[in-house]
């Protein structure tokens, strides 16, 4: 095969895959700028003039703002707590000697393979018994618990690599474990912490099944659940739904555009170290 032909072939494959991976986004964004009439007249046109921005205002009157708020509140709260709780647990597991290091580590990381369904009914019952069913608070526990395995997995690997000398020097200066944790371990593991922040933020932002089971009223819905409700109630209004999908996907896409390397690393975190 000649070199030119090979080059051409590579381009063709790359472009075909480009269309396959990219076209749905183009469809979503272009449809979101169409009016309902122009969508039914020419659903396949990439752009139909004039651009119609009313879908974006309309979805907010339909309650998208509330879903956004709820998603932001639960994501920020849950991610903050996961980082704190996971870092606290990772410190003794990775640095202090006691009999249970290994069993505890395995117990936590075993959670990575666990199907959520195996916990769904008891968590549903527990949430009702605690009196927090149908509130954002209901999601907090499950989100933290299911983020712990990957977070502890990444953090313990990182903490193990912190030089022993730093810790010993601090010990000689009379630092206790709490000071060592705050003043040495946390600053030294910032890269790992940013990885788990990104990883968990994306997963919690997009989480669906717990929200589906634990939330019922629209006022408490997170974005994924709210989008599904939009579809159930307004499925005829395709352009508005596409505007909602575009907006809901925006935060993660923006984070990705501004911190591409970090996001890729963060998402691969489970498989590739830190």
């Amino acid at each position: 095969m000649s070199k030119h032909l090979k080059h051409l072939l590579t381009y063709v494959v790359a472009l075909l895959l480009f269309v396959f991976m990219g076209y749905p986004f183009l469809y979503m964004i272009s449809t979101s700028f169409k009016s309902l009439e122009s969508f039914f007249i020419e659903p396949f046109a990439i752009l139909s003039w004039p651009l119609n921005f009313s879908n974006y205002t309309e979805v907010f009157t339909m309650g998208l703002g509330r879903y956004f708020m709820n998603s932001i509140i639960i994501s920020v709260t849950a991610v903050t707590l996961v980082v704190l709780v996971a870092a606290l647990a990772s410190y003794p597991i990775s640095r202090l000697k006691f009999k249970m290091n290994r069993p505890l580590f395995l117990l936590f990381i075993a959670g990575m393979m666990l199907p959520i369904h195996a916990t769904l009914i008891p968590i549903f019952v527990l949430t009702q018994n605690l009196g927090i069913y149908d509130s954002l608070l209901a999601l907090l526990g499950p989100y933290i618990a299911f983020a712990l395995p990957i977070s502890i997995f990444i953090l313990t690997q990182f903490m193990q690599e912190v030089p022993k000398e730093l810790e010993e020097a601090a010990m000689i200066d009379g630092c206790g474990h709490i000071r060592i944790f705050w003043n040495i371990m946390v600053p030294m593991t910032i890269p790992a912490i940013s990885t788990i922040v990104i990883y968990n933020f994306i997963h919690i932002w997009t989480e669906f099944i717990f929200a589906l089971v634990l939330i019922s009223s629209p006022g408490n819905m997170t974005l994924p659940l709210g989008l599904q409700r939009f579809y159930d109630e307004f499925s005829v209004n395709v352009p508005a739904l596409m505007a909602a999908l575009t907006l809901a996907s925006m935060p993660i896409l923006l984070v990705y555009i501004f911190a591409q390397e970090k996001v890729v690393k963060g998402l691969a975190g489970g498989a590739v170290k830190g």
Partner: peptide, 12 residues
């Protein structure tokens, strides 16, 4: 573009 699909929520 190749990477973008993985960033959307499954519901979306």
């Amino acid at each position: 573009v190749y990477f973008m699909p993985f960033l959307m929520s499954t519901v979306a």
